[in-house]
Design a protein around this nucleic acid. Structure first.
Lengths: 359, 359
DNA sequence: TATTTATTTGACAGCGTTGTCAGATATCAA
DNA sequence: TTGATATCTGACAACGCTGTCAAATAAATA
């Protein structure tokens, strides 16, 4: 019955003293096969008799054997390591991203190296080249704004590491991509404002180096024009995605004696929060005196009062998708579709809360 | 003058075609020394003539040589990899932690593996053992509540990996520790409330498996007793550190026809936010009708209205300290002080904002 | 049964480093 | 100068695994 009874006794090393790490040699000896066969079994390779396979598996089990990842990487082609490169724009965004990617890695016995990049130093290129030549990663994920920086792309490509870009703006088709239709989302949000009766709508742009900034702006403008409403240039202000820049923009918008829009569409939530704090201080009531909407759906939206109407980005799902692309590629049987042609577009949601008043 | 002029010409491989990774062999050949000597130079080991050292350094430079981390780990004793094990209690906390540790790793050419642990599965032990036997980490950092779980400590110890615990509660002196005087902080916060004239003070406890929960509770109780104020048992409620549990506790506190404290001390900010949202809905004004304080100083404190008075934990500094301990240990010259005796205590700050009214 | 072909298995050579140890060189006394 | 030390340097064997390729075995064909 039990096919796997025949383990040679007595040859086993002292089993499982907690912490005593066993090697492929130990398993091979215990199972009475060569290390190569053990290797085959551990990697689910074909051409191993079922009986042998079971024997090896049992031995590995008894010894609590876990292949050494470092040795594996060194000898083989895979490293079981993924990299997430980012420059912290919105902390919660990165956090969700990281969380999603790690989750997928876990499931595939991969590990994740999270590597923030300092853009101010002007050494991104060096830093990345350094990373990639030090550790052979099986793939890297590039978040905005890194995914739109030519030097970054070049460096990763030079290292010949497959990579996927999250929400890229520039260089379409250059590699696998995970995105969301940001322009469309901004378009719909603007439409929503229009439908609520607003015509005097202001817009706060994000950091100019982020692709999303342009996409969101574009969506806003299209919606306005399609509705036959001409946006007022002085109501389109430059922000930088940060809470502080939101404060600055808020001060600009609410300066004394100025005509004010009835609604402001902020390119992200954090800036909306900044504006709201200024409004609060100046006694401008939201949404009664002014409607505000954001973009991202960060946790703060439900903390702030009134709760912020915004666009939810499916960040975790995007993380899943990115990780999946890389992971699948590594198991891909050669004939997979060209990597660079992969594009996964995920749906957004307009989350209606309490920061907009119907006129 | 120039000591390093004498590189043998012509023996160099095609230099620095972008992405062409060079090995220690290439450097050795170009510098005209053995690979062992290159290794010595790269590791700043003694016993290399200055002249030789310079020659090697130059060669390494020319070739953009970066030692392969995997090979290094396999051959040597160090892996240049640290692990951050956590179970997500408060996202922003982990994020800051991660950020701090990564920063330090960067500076020392280390890398960080962030590994969330699923406590619900009951397989933490397996998961960690698995990680540690797969990759030989040079150290791991344990955040609450992992740092107080006996199985976790045992597993890490069994794998013989040095680790430092952040804000541990149980098993003092078991290993290096980074902490903050949470009990003292809670004591002072309670005193603050007392000084503001409050006597009817409620307290919301955190998740019972987090050490901080007990420390903060203890601090609260001591301060009350020292002030000769007996806390009312029905005003001490159990929460779980989450926003949702704050909502639940809020509902319990504010149920119809019940006597209500004039101030509530929540064991963390998120629960305070939850209570505030309930209060808002019920028309209980803060701080006019009720004062609330939190603990942690998460970003939301400045978003919510009124801004929340709280205790700032020096999370980033704690991360720095933890990383430093591990990193230093790896460079330690044997005679370092016993690892387990290291305790770094960092200062907290009471951040006074607008959520408390003076009675 | 004798061949041919397909399936399993193992020997062995790396992968790019570091550790060990012995040999080569330089330095210092006498 | 000659040993005797102290200082450098390099051969070579690991580290734990995978890739390659040939040998051994089983299955299929004639």
């Amino acid at each position: 019955m039990n096919q796997t009874k025949a383990l040679p006794e007595g040859t086993a090393p002292a089993p499982g003293i907690a912490g005593a790490i066993s090697t492929i040699n130990d398993v091979a000896r215990l199972a009475g096969v060569s290390i190569k066969t053990v290797s085959r079994v551990m990697n689910d390779e074909p051409n191993v008799r079922e009986e042998t396979r079971a024997k090896v598996k049992q031995a590995a089990d008894v010894l609590h054997y876990r292949p050494n990842l470092l040795a594996r990487s060194l000898a083989g082609a895979r490293s079981f390591l993924l990299g997430l490169l980012y420059h912290n724009p919105v902390p919660t965004y990165i956090m969700q991203m990281h969380h999603g990617v790690v989750k997928r890695c876990r499931e595939s016995n991969y590990h994740l190296l999270a590597e923030p990049q300092d853009l101010t130093s002007g050494e991104v290129e060096k830093s990345i080249a350094n990373l990639l030549s030090t550790i052979r990663l099986d793939g890297v994920i590039l978040t905005p704004p890194l995914c739109d920086m030519a030097v970054v792309l070049q460096t990763v490509e030079a290292a010949n590491v497959p990579y996927v870009r999250i929400a890229p703006f520039l260089y379409p088709g250059r590699t696998a991509t995970v995105r969301m239709d940001e322009a469309r989302a901004a378009y719909e949000m603007t439409q929503y404002l229009l439908n609520m009766g607003h015509r005097d709508i202001g817009f706060v742009m994000g950091h100019p180096e982020h692709g999303g900034t342009h996409l969101r702006y574009k969506g806003f403008m299209s919606a306005m024009r399609d509705a036959g409403v001409e946006p007022r240039p002085e109501w389109i202000k430059q922000g930088y995605f940060s809470f502080e820049s939101g404060v600055d923009v808020g001060n600009a918008f609410f300066a004394d004696g100025q005509a004010r829009p009835t609604a402001i569409f902020s390119s992200n939530d954090d800036m909306a929060f900044g504006m709201m704090s200024v409004a609060q201080r100046l006694g401008i009531r939201i949404p009664d005196d002014l409607s505000i909407v954001g973009f991202d759906d960060t946790p703060g939206c439900e903390l702030i009062w009134p709760h912020l109407t915004t666009i939810r980005q499916p960040v975790t799902d995007m993380a899943f998708a990115a990780a999946d692309i890389l992971l699948e590629r590594n198991n891909a049987d050669e004939d997979a579709p060209p990597f660079s042609s992969i594009v996964r577009e995920l749906p957004f949601t307009l989350i209606e809360r309490d920061s907009v008043r119907k006129l």
